[in-house]
Computed example of a mutant assay.
Amino acid sequence: MDIEHKQAELIGHFVKQAETHRGSALANVIVEATSDSSLFAFSEILAAPNVSELQGTEYSVFLDMLRLFAHGTWSDYKSNAGCLPQLVPDQVRKLKQLSVLTLAETKKVLPYDQLMLEIDVLNVRELEDFLINECMYAGIVRGKLDQLRRCFEVQFAAGRDLRPGQLGSMIQTLTNWLATSDNLLLSIQEKIKWADMTSEVDKKHKKEIEDRVEEVKKSLSLKQADMEFQGHEEIFYSEPGGVMDYEEDRSRPKRRRPPIS
Rank of each mutant, 00 (worst) to 15 (best):
Q55N: 11
R255L: 15
T34H: 00
K6M: 08
E126D: 14
E128I: 12
Q155G: 07
A25W: 08
S187C: 05
A47M: 07
N80D: 11
F236I: 09
R257C: 09
V88N: 11
E190T: 11
R149E: 13
L54Y: 02
V154F: 07
A157R: 05
E190S: 15
V51S: 01
A33T: 03
S169G: 06
M227A: 09
V100S: 00
N176L: 11
N183V: 03
R257A: 14
G12Q: 15
K144L: 10
D202P: 00
S238W: 06
V51K: 04
G168C: 04
E118Q: 10
H21R: 13
E248V: 03
E126I: 01
E118Y: 00
R256I: 07
I192N: 02
L98N: 00
L185C: 06
K204G: 01
G165P: 06
A81R: 14
E9C: 08
S181R: 14
E32S: 14
S221D: 11
Q17H: 03
P258M: 12
L95G: 01
D36E: 07
T175Y: 05
E233G: 01
E118F: 01
R163L: 11
N50Y: 03
Q166A: 15
Q97C: 12
I188T: 12
I188Y: 08
F229R: 11
E134F: 04
S251N: 14
P259W: 09
I260Q: 11
F130D: 01
C83A: 13
S199D: 12
L26N: 03
E44P: 02
K254T: 09
V141P: 04
H71K: 05
D196C: 05
G231T: 09
D161Y: 06
S181P: 00
E239Q: 15
I119C: 01
E233Q: 15
E228H: 04
R256S: 12
R252I: 13
P164M: 08
F229I: 04
I3P: 01
E215V: 04
D182A: 11
G242S: 14
A18V: 03
S251F: 13
S187Q: 15
E210G: 02
Y59T: 00
I235F: 07
K217F: 06
I140R: 00
F40M: 07
G12Y: 09
H205Y: 04
K207G: 04
L185R: 10
V141S: 02
M1A: 08
L220F: 05
I132S: 07
